[in-house]
C-alpha cells in the first residue's frame, strides 16, 4: 500500500457534482460533508478519511463511516459511484488489484486492518465476502463449505467438519435441499442455491462481518426473497454490509443506509428515514428515480 497525499483542493474542485445535463432542474450541490449519522455508538468497524485510487484516478473521496455491531448497513448509489470499491477495502480484497491504493483508517474492533503487521489471512477469516455472481468452487457441495474451515484448521476431526458443514448449510437455509447430495458438484445447483452455498461457505469460517456485493443481482425474485430472509436471520450473529441496486431490497433488509455519489458518501441515516424523508437532495433524487 503506498501512501498517497490527498490534497483537499482536489475535493473542493469537484465538489460541484456534474449531473446528467438533460436534467438542469436538479442542480444539486454537494459540499463534501456527509449528512445524517455516519458514525455509530457501537461500531464493529469504523472507517475514517478513506481515499481510494486506481492508479491516478480517485474512486473514493474522504469517506467516514461506522458499521454498527449486529446491524445491516446497505450501500446504495448510482453505478460506478464506488460502492464495490469501498466494500472491497473492508477485507482488503483490493490488495489483489495492483493499481489500487488505499489510504485512511480502517478499524475493526480497535484493530487497524491496514497495519503493516496485519496478516490478511486472519482478517479475511473475520471479514467474509459474498460476491455478485455466485462463484462456488468446481468441487462438491461439502468441499465448498468445508474449504474455509479446512484451510484455517477449524476442525481437527472429520465429525467436527461434518458438523460445521451442516450448521453452515442450515444457517444458509440450504441444508434441506442438499443434504442428500452433499457430494455432488456445487456448480450443479441453481443460481439461487449456488448463492446460498456461497453464503454458507463464508459463514462456515464464523466471520464477524459479512460483506455482500449485490448478492441477489443474478437471482430471480423468489431466490432473492430467500436470501433477504436469510440476511435478516444472519443479523443476529453477524454484522453485515450489503451493496444493492434495489431500493426495495435496501429498505427491506437494512437498518442503516449509506448513499454514495461519485465516490463520495452523501448521506447515512436509518433506512426508514432515508426512504421516507431523505436529508439530502441527491439522495432524494436517486431514490425517487430521477437519476442513477
Amino acid at each position: 500500500m503506498q501512501a498517497v497525499n490527498q490534497n483537499n483542493a482536489a475535493t473542493d474542485d469537484s465538489a460541484e457534482l456534474k449531473l446528467p445535463s438533460d436534467d438542469q432542474a436538479t442542480q444539486h450541490k454537494f459540499d463534501g460533508k456527509t449528512v445524517g449519522h455516519p458514525l455509530s455508538d457501537n461500531p464493529k468497524m469504523s472507517m475514517r478519511n478513506v481515499n481510494v485510487f486506481y492508479g491516478e484516478k480517485q474512486a473514493i473521496f474522504n469517506v467516514d463511516l461506522d458499521i454498527a455491531q449486529n446491524q445491516v448497513i446497505a450501500m446504495i448509489g448510482p453505478s460506478g459511484c464506488g460502492k464495490s470499491t469501498f466494500l472491497r477495502c473492508l477485507n482488503r480484497m483490493n490488495d489483489t488489484i495492483e493499481s489500487c491504493s488505499v489510504t485512511g483508517e480502517f478499524i475493526l474492533d480497535k484493530q487497524d486492518i491496514y497495519h503493516p503487521k496485519q496478516d490478511i489471512v486472519p482478517l479475511r477469516a473475520r471479514v467474509g465476502m459474498v460476491f455478485q455472481k455466485p462463484n462456488p468452487f468446481p468441487k462438491s457441495i461439502y468441499e465448498n463449505v468445508a474449504y474455509g474451515p479446512k484451510i484455517h484448521g477449524l476442525a481437527s476431526r472429520r465429525a467436527e467438519l461434518d458438523e460445521i458443514v451442516e450448521v453452515s448449510l442450515r444457517k444458509a437455509g440450504l441444508w434441506e435441499e442438499v443434504k442428500d447430495r452433499l457430494h455432488s458438484p456445487g456448480t450443479g445447483l441453481s443460481g439461487g442455491q449456488q448463492q446460498r452455498l456461497c453464503i454458507a461457505r463464508s459463514i462456515a469460517v464464523s466471520p464477524e462481518v459479512i460483506l455482500m456485493d449485490e448478492p441477489c443481482s443474478a437471482l430471480d425474485p423468489i431466490a432473492t426473497a430467500k436470501i433477504e430472509e436469510l440476511i435478516a436471520e444472519l443479523k443476529e450473529n453477524f454484522t453485515i454490509a450489503i451493496v444493492t441496486h434495489s431500493m426495495q431490497q435496501a429498505a427491506r433488509v437494512s437498518d442503516r443506509t449509506a448513499y454514495f455519489h461519485l465516490g463520495k458518501l452523501v448521506e447515512v441515516n436509518d433506512t426508514k428515514r432515508v426512504f421516507t424523508n431523505p436529508e439530502h437532495d441527491l439522495t432524494e433524487a436517486y431514490i425517487t428515480g430521477r437519476f442513477g
Binding site: N91, M93, T96, I120, V121, P122, L123, R124, A125, G128, M129, F131, K133, N135, P136, F137, P138, Y147, G148, I151, H152, C198, R201, S202, V205
Partner: peptide, 18 residues
C-alpha cells in the same frame, strides 16, 4: 481460470499458495 474462483478463495482467507 475464472477470476471469480480466485476471488472466492481469497475472500475466504486462503493464502496465495493455497
Amino acid at each position: 481460470v475464472p477470476p471469480s474462483i480466485r476471488d472466492a478463495a481469497y475472500g475466504l482467507g486462503a493464502s496465495k499458495m493455497q
